[in-house]
Simulated assay, not measured.
Amino acid sequence: MSNFEKRLAELGVTLPDAPAPAANYVPFVVVGDLVHISGQISQKDGALLTGKLGDGVSIEDGAKAARTCAIGLLAQLKAACGGDLDRLVRVVKLTGFVSSTADFTDQPKVINGASDFLVDALGEAGRHARSAVSAASLPLGVTVEIEGIFQIR
């Protein structure tokens, strides 16, 4: 078990198997020492987390949905690293998409669910640049989708 996975276990998190792509794309692309991971959608235990911020979904529930996306990103990263999560150098950038109404403006608070989790789980290696944007809708009606760029050794 990697050092990062030990920390995840302390947080009560076991990484799932990396989900397969749902369409015509690959889950990640490795270019040099960077891993570009395709968008991971909000889901827990195989169930989609759906709904729209500003229309029935709370910021707290949105942040929980973002956290599940971060777990999916780490599962994909582990697959990209041949099962060795300790190859991670740092999280470089996240781009978070929040399904929300036109007047909802707290997208950063929602994506904090992913950012806070990555810092808790990875320490300084989890600190990253980030964008948090609104979307009128997301695939399959999910609440959040997040893509990421990671540096590996």
Rank of each mutant, 00 (worst) to 15 (best):
L34A: 12
L34R: 15
L34Q: 14
L34P: 00
V35Y: 07
V35S: 09
V35K: 04
I37D: 05
Q40P: 03
I41S: 11
S42P: 04
S42V: 08
K44T: 15
D45R: 08
D45I: 03
G46N: 11
G46Y: 03
A47S: 14
A47N: 14
L48I: 03
L49E: 05
T50S: 12
T50E: 13
L53S: 00
V57G: 02
I59T: 15
I59Y: 01
E60W: 00
E60M: 11
E60R: 11
D61S: 06
G62S: 01
A63C: 06
K64I: 05
A66W: 02
C69L: 10
C69N: 10
A70P: 10
I71F: 06
G72L: 08
L74P: 06
L74R: 04
L74K: 04
A75P: 03
Q76N: 14
Q76M: 09
L77K: 03
L77N: 03
L77D: 05
A79P: 10
A80W: 11
G82L: 13
G83S: 07
G83C: 08
L85W: 11
D86Y: 10
D86S: 12
L88C: 13
L88S: 15
V89E: 15
R90D: 09
V92K: 12
K93L: 08
L94V: 06
G96D: 04
F97K: 07
F97L: 14
F97D: 08
S100K: 05
D103M: 06
F104H: 09
F104I: 04
F104D: 05
D106P: 04
D106V: 00
D106C: 07
Q107T: 09
P108Y: 10
P108G: 11
K109Y: 01
K109W: 00
V110D: 01
N112M: 13
L118S: 02
